[in-house]
Design a protein around this nucleic acid. Structure first.
Length: 823
RNA sequence: GCCGUUGUGGCGGAACUGGUAUACGCGCACGACUCAAAAUCGUGUUCCCUCGGGAAUAUGGGUUCGAUUCCCAUCAACGGCACCA
């Protein structure tokens, strides 16, 4: 017998990766085709200097398995990969080393590409894109223009996080516990003129006046997509729609009033004071002369604080009295108007009415000795005594008291009644409020897409002409932060502006948030080289929305909300004919270090995928990551577990060796298991239950090693294993000579199972007495109840228990069990 | 505080629609091969036990002939949001 060499994963994997690349095995074009298309997308990575870590291939393996599966099911699959290449780390690296972000990013991309390619994923690399490429961000800028021209991109003053140490604005993510993540200085609030996208315009459904076409809003759209329920809930909470009442208050000695938004109008009768946000424009007017100094001092104090400090729940309530009074519209009580920073200017109307049934209000009243009243009583009498004596704050729903005709109603009823009365008296109305604010996209950084806006010598903004796009990043900049955007230091940028737009013209020097670039990349993959459009209509029509999107749950709100927003924008303006970009979404769970902690350099528990690929091969890495546990769960790495998968790969090779040496088995001993296995892998793969699919393959391989494999067994095994471990499967497929008659493994149809052959002709029945297992017997599954009971009674261990009492009931579950109820 | 997710052997985990809990893998133990070790192969492995059985799926109840699965309460861990009126 010829000696079969040991499995050489290093060369076999290289060989097949080259084969796929040379053949263009996974490349697809945009020409219309007979096949149904399917678009499978990974969240494209940020190419960091640290390189790939084992978390990346978890999602990539899942999409690769599904991509290969769908191709075998005869779908035309678009499965691309690219780079979310703008971002702060490259810029920080540039500040430290003066290496241009462009250069370090290109290097990182090269590194990532090599690592990803070593895992044998079936990407169409001809569609690779990078968001930092001018040919890409040209279209990011085009989308900005589209929003600008339709009044959906605007500039206004907004408070931003400011670090005096770094002399720059920071993103919220860069602020850790109220301090700069880099220099640890306290972060302050500063007002700067910033660009915003009007995402709030897309919360609700929109009907186009001319065409009558509806663009589903960000809330309702969630109902029609297959996403994890928890992600949908998080998005709804983030949007934060609430129904409430606007109440108008008169100001004593003024003909101007104020309006307050509340969801708890049932507590209006206990409203004894008003609180207004420090930034509110009315503060100035409401503050009387003798209180001006006190309020001014308070404001000064507040302005020096960051939002994080201001919203620290543990801190004491602070505030200042303006001297003005409002009139409670239902009780006519005089309500002192205070300024306090726990009220946020950008939610509701920036003013609240305060009362004893809100913890913040209660706390503030106690601190400043503001009078309180109660208007809600709890069911519990003991508690009521304390509430009535203003010892504790009762903030839940209750029964109304001291509220005139509404006494005795429960909170929900009272809200309706009180609102109706306010409406009748012209003092209020029902309204809806949202927590979601417009998206601030300006960044005072270098390494992002330039904002295509130009200012004339008077500072008037206009959009950069389409002919002048892309507005490319200048390279003659000083990366060191000085308090303004790095682009401001470029002479070349000024020269270009003046050349195109006349003397004194200046381009906007802020760049866009990188989330803008990643909000539309999935369309660019469809037609990455198009120079006339972000993607051509033929490509857009062929591929449609993303059918399957896989990525981490950390993008539950930001990225996934922004991408939905862009989709709705393009739908509203007629560029695409669907208004949800991702039809099916799945999240992978995080892979933890061997110590069960999050992987981090400082902990020293980072697993490098290169190491696994060298030691055990890409097939092992792929399979192990899928076998660790449920896809969406967090799970710790275990080197021994990976070695176990390597052993499985060896067993597959051993099976091949034995077939090569002894020939195929002639007795189809595993026919039943073969069909059951195909069935289970098919179902598990479709349901993202990759861990149990692999278990089943192990069972099958173990049985084949024990009983011998027929030709049908080997074909079936390689076809199903081929989507999980494509290299070894393709190799054995070729070595067994299957390719000559059938072509390459990855060109085969997915195997089908015969449902009739999945059924066992003899199964084990369980016999219980009072629900406790007392024995089993083997029988045909279609046995009648009487036959089953007879078999069961004859078991020695069962009859013993039956004789101990009277049999009250006999239960027979076909194909499963018999249960006797004995008293 | 609010929202969400999860609790099953020594470990990762499995269990269809309420029907034999612990599949598969890891680890461990013993055995085979070997001068020996590694690798490999085989056997065993939830716990207790008087070997007949008893107990166990975070805890305490409930529904049911029967509950990891359904219901109620409690506890713990993780993740997100957080002075949102």
């Amino acid at each position: 017998m010829a000696q079969i060499p040991n499995y050489d994963h290093i060369n076999v994997e290289k060989k097949w990766q080259k084969n796929w690349e040379d053949r263009g095995a996974f490349e697809v074009d945009n020409a219309p085709s007979e096949k149904t298309t399917y678009y499978i997308l990974d969240m494209f990575p940020y190419p960091s200097g640290a390189g790939l870590h084992v978390g990346h291939p978890e999602g990539y393996t899942a999409t690769d398995i599904v991509s290969r599966y769908m191709r075998m099911k005869d779908y035309e699959v678009l499965h691309p990969m690219g780079w979310d290449a703008f971002g702060l780390p490259a810029e920080n690296y540039a500040i430290k080393t003066n290496v241009a972000p462009e250069k370090s990013t290109r290097g990182n991309i090269e590194n990532f590409t090599g690592q990803i390619k070593s895992l044998g994923f079936s990407y169409d690399w001809t569609r690779e894109i990078a968001t930092c490429d001018p040919s890409y961000y040209r279209w990011t800028q085009w989308i900005f223009s589209l929003l600008y021209k339709n009044g959906l991109a605007y500039k206004k003053e907004a408070p931003v996080n400011w670090c005096d140490g770094c002399m720059t604005v920071l993103a919220n993510e860069q602020v850790v516990d109220g301090a700069c993540e880099r220099c640890k200085n306290d972060v302050l609030q500063k007002n700067l003129s910033q660009w915003f996208f009007k995402i709030t315009d897309f919360i609700e459904d929109y009907v186009d006046e001319k065409t009558g076409r509806t663009t589903t809003g960000l809330i309702n759209g969630l109902d029609k997509i297959d996403w994890p329920e928890s992600t949908k809930i998080a998005q709804r909470n983030w949007i934060g729609k609430s129904f409430g009442t606007e109440v108008d208050f008169e100001i004593e000695g003024s003909n101007q009033g104020i309006t307050v938004y509340t969801t708890r109008v049932d507590t209006l009768f206990s409203g004894t004071f008003i609180v207004i946000a420090p930034e509110h424009p009315l503060v100035e007017k409401l503050t009387l002369e003798e209180h001006r100094e006190e309020v001014r001092k308070y404001m000064e104090n507040t302005q020096g604080k960051s939002e994080i400090q201001r919203t620290d729940l543990n801190k004491d309530k602070t505030g200042a009295f303006t001297g003005s009074y409002a009139i409670n519209p239902v009780t006519n009580d005089r309500m002192p108007i205070w300024v306090a920073d726990f009220v946020l200017v950008n939610y509701g109307t920036g003013i609240v009415f305060a009362d004893a049934h809100d913890e913040r209000d209660f706390e503030m009243a106690k601190k400043f000795n503001i009078p309180l009243k109660v208007s809600l009583r709890p069911k519990d009498d003991e508690l009521w005594k304390q509430v009535e004596n203003l010892e504790v704050c009762f903030h839940e729903e209750g029964i109304l008291v001291n509220s005139e005709e509404f006494d005795g109603l429960i909170s929900a009823e009272a809200r309706e009644g009180i609102t109706d009365r306010l409406i009748k008296e012209g003092k209020g109305r029902r309204t809806t409020n949202y927590r979601l604010r417009d998206w601030l996209i300006s960044r005072q950084r270098y390494w992002g897409s330039p904002i295509p806006v130009v200012y004339d010598s008077n500072g008037n903004a206009s959009i950069v002409k389409d002919d002048h796009l892309p507005l490319e990043l200048p390279t003659d900049v000083d990366y060191k932060p000085k308090g303004t955007s790095p682009l401001g230091s470029s002479e070349e940028y000024v020269a270009r502006a003046e050349e195109l737009y006349g003397e004194g013209a200046r381009f906007e020097i802020d760049t866009m948030d990188t989330f803008v670039c990643s909000s539309w990349y999935f369309w660019r993959f469809m037609d990455p080289k198009n120079e006339k459009l972000f993607a051509g209509s033929e490509a857009l029509k062929k591929w449609g929305a993303v059918d399957l999107y896989v990525g981490g749950a950390e993008h539950t709100v930001m990225h996934l909300l922004y991408a939905r927003f862009f989709c709705k924008v393009l739908h509203r303006f007629g560029y695409i004919d669907y208004d949800e970009p991702f039809l099916k979404l799945r999240h992978q769970g995080m892979i933890l270090g061997e110590d069960g902690e999050k992987m981090s350099k400082s902990r020293g528990n980072v697993i490098n995928p290169n190491e696994i690929v060298e030691r055990h091969g890409a097939d092992t890495l792929r399979m192990y990551e899928m076998f660790m546990g449920p896809f969406k769960d967090m799970k710790p790495w275990n080197m021994n577990g990976a070695a176990g998968i390597y052993r499985f790969v060896q067993k597959v090779w051993k099976l091949y060796s034995s077939v090569k040496g002894n020939g195929f088995a002639t007795d189809d001993a595993c026919e039943n298991l073969r069909h059951k296995t195909i069935k289970k892998i098919t179902e598990d793969t479709e349901n993202f239950k990759f861990n149990t699919a692999i278990s089943q393959m192990m069972v099958y391989v173990n049985e084949l090693n024990a009983n011998g494999a027929t030709k049908k067994d080997m074909e079936a095994l390689l076809l199903i294993l081929g989507i999980y471990s494509p290299h070894i499967s393709a190799e054995i497929w070729e070595l067994l000579g299957f390719e000559k008659e059938l072509g390459f493994l990855d060109e085969q149809p997915w195997p089908i199972y015969d449902a009739a052959l999945c059924v066992d002709n003899e199964i084990e029945f369980a016999v219980q007495v009072n629900g406790k297992l007392r024995g089993t017997f083997m029988s045909a599954p279609n046995i009648t109840k009487d036959e089953a009971l007879k078999e069961a009674r004859e078991l020695e261990n069962v009859s013993k228990f039956l004789n101990e009492g009277e049999v009250l009931k006999e239960i027979y579950v076909p194909g499963k069990l018999v249960n006797f109820v004995v008293r």
